[in-house]
Design a protein around this nucleic acid. Structure first.
Lengths: 254, 254
DNA sequence: TCGCGTTTGTGTAAGGTACACACGAATAAA
DNA sequence: TTTATTCGTGTGTACCTTACACAAACGCGA
C-alpha cells in the first residue's frame, strides 16, 4: 500500500485521483454530493458550454450548492481540473501486442486520443501542468510505452516518440475543433481574407497567400490528413527502429 | 493597398498588427503612450513575472495609468495578447535556400522557435486562437513553407510538416521550462515519488515506474534530446520526399 | 432512551483580483 | 470657440478563495 505521505503536501488532485481519502469516519453530516458527482457535473458543464463555463459558481449552481461548498470536495480549482482531466480522457485503449504490430498500436492510440477530444472538446483547453500522475492518464502512457519498447525502442526513445504522438493528436484535435466552429475569427472568414490577401501580396507572402486563396490554408482536417501526419511520424519511428535512417544518425541538419 | 474593410469587424489585433489605424487626425489630447509602448510594457511584465501576471491593472500601473486607459490603445485583452505574441515571437529567422538544404533550414527554424521560447518563456502559455494572421507570425510560416515546398513538397504537405515542426518546438520548449523550474508539483519531487511509486507497482504500471525510478521520466531536455525528435520528424519528411516510405503509402497501421 | 459533544457539511459574508464600460473632466488641435 | 480625443473616477459583473457561524448527523455516556 502507500507510504505515510501527507496528502496535503501532494500536488492537487493526486490523492483524490487515487481514491486516497478513504473516508473512514462516518461521523457528522452526510455529504449531499460525492467527489465523483462533483467531477461528473463539472464534465457535463464543460461539455455543454465549453471550458470557459467551468467556473466554481456555475458548478455550484448546477449542484444546488453555493460556490463555497465545492471546496469541501476539492481543495482548489486546480485540483478539480486535474480530476476533470482524468475523467475526461477516461480509460486508455487496449492496444494489440506483438513487436510487429506497433504501427497498428500507435495508430490506435493516436486516433483514440483524437476521438476523446471529439467527445470532450474542452480536453484540449485543459492546462497541462506536467507529466501525468493520475491512473487513467498514466495508463495511456503505459500502454503506448509498452508498444514502443516492445517494438525495440529504448525507454527514453519510447518516451520521446510517445510525446510526439501525444502532441500530434492534441494539436490535430485542436485545429479540427477550431475549423469546425469556423467563427468570425477564423481565417476562413471572407472579411478576414478580404483584408489580409492584399496585404499578403503587397508585403511578400506569396505562399501563404496562395494557400489562402486556394482554401488549403483553412480547410477541414479530414481522416486523410490525420493519416498523413501520422504516417510521417511512424515512418520516422520506423527508421529509428531499423537503424537505417535515410541520412544521418545524430545531426538532423546535414 | 487594403480594401475598405471595417477594422471593427476584424479579429482582435489584426488591424493594429498591420499598422492599420493610420491615425490621421492629430486632434484632441495627445496620448501619453503608443500602442507599441503598451505592448512593450506588457512583454516586460510577462518577462518579469510570467504570463499570469499579465493583467490589465498591473499593466496600467506599470505605465502610470488606470486600468481603463489601456482600452484606448487595445480594444480588449485578447487584442493585447495577439500583439504581445507578435512582438514576443519577433521576426522569423533567415533560412538557407536551395532544395538540398531543406534539413538545415527546417532545423534552424525549429531551433529558432525553441530559442524564442527560452527568451520569452510565456510564449508557450499564450493561447493560440487559430492560424497566424500577423506579419511576424506569418513570416515564420512563409519561410518554412518556402523551404519545404522548395524541397519538393506540395503546399498541403508542406503545411502539415510545418505544423508538425511547430508543435514539436512548442512542446519541447514547454517541457524544458517545466523541468527547469522543477517545483514541488513536478514528478521529480521526492514526495510525489514516495507516494506514487508503490501505487504504480501495485496497480500494474511497470514501465512508468521503471522510468520514474531511473529518473529518465523527468530528466532535463538537453540538446541531444531535441536533436533526436527533430531527426525523427525530418526522416519522416525525407521519406515523403523520396517517395520510398518504409512500409506503406496511406495506411499507417499496416 | 435521551442528551451532549464531536464531527462534518452548508450558507452568509467578505476579501481580493480581474475585465469592461459609462460618464464627465481635461487637453489640444482646428 | 468648436471639436475630437485622452484620461480618471466610478460602476458593474464575474471569479477564486477564505473566515466564521449555523445546522445536521453520528457515537457515547447517562
Amino acid at each position: 500500500m502507500s507510504t505515510g505521505v501527507d496528502p496535503q503536501e501532494l500536488p492537487p488532485g493526486l490523492a483524490l485521483a487515487w481514491g486516497l481519502p478513504a473516508k473512514t469516519s462516518k461521523l457528522g453530516r452526510t455529504p449531499s454530493q460525492s467527489v465523483e458527482q462533483v467531477v461528473e457535473a463539472a464534465v457535463e458543464l464543460a461539455d455543454a458550454d465549453g471550458f470557459a463555463a467551468l467556473s466554481m459558481p456555475k458548478l455550484a449552481k448546477k449542484l444546488g450548492l453555493t460556490a463555497n461548498a465545492i471546496y469541501r470536495y476539492v481543495r482548489s480549482r486546480d485540483e478539480l481540473l486535474v480530476l476533470v482531466a482524468e475523467t475526461g480522457w477516461g480509460p486508455a485503449p487496449d492496444l494489440v501486442s506483438g513487436a510487429d504490430r506497433w504501427r497498428t498500436a500507435a495508430t490506435t492510440w493516436t486516433r483514440s486520443m483524437i476521438d476523446r477530444c471529439d467527445v470532450h472538446p474542452w480536453l484540449v483547453d485543459l492546462p497541462v501542468r506536467g507529466a501525468p500522475v493520475t491512473p487513467n492518464l498514466l495508463r495511456w502512457t503505459e500502454v503506448i510505452l509498452e508498444s514502443l519498447t516492445g517494438a525495440g525502442l529504448s525507454p527514453k526513445e519510447a518516451i520521446q516518440c510517445a510525446l510526439l504522438l501525444d502532441v500530434y493528436a492534441r494539436r490535430t484535435a485542436d485545429m479540427r475543433r477550431d475549423l469546425r466552429q469556423s467563427n468570425a475569427g477564423s481565417v476562413k472568414s471572407t472579411t478576414v481574407q478580404d483584408f489580409l490577401l492584399p496585404l499578403l501580396h503587397e508585403h511578400g507572402y506569396p505562399l501563404v497567400a496562395a494557400l489562402m486563396t486556394s482554401n488549403e490554408y483553412s480547410d477541414d482536417i479530414d481522416d486523410n490528413d490525420v493519416t498523413f501526419g501520422l504516417t510521417l511520424i511512424l515512418d520516422g519511428i520506423d527508421g529509428l527502429l531499423s537503424g537505417n535512417k535515410p541520412h544521418h544518425t545524430t545531426d538532423p541538419a546535414g
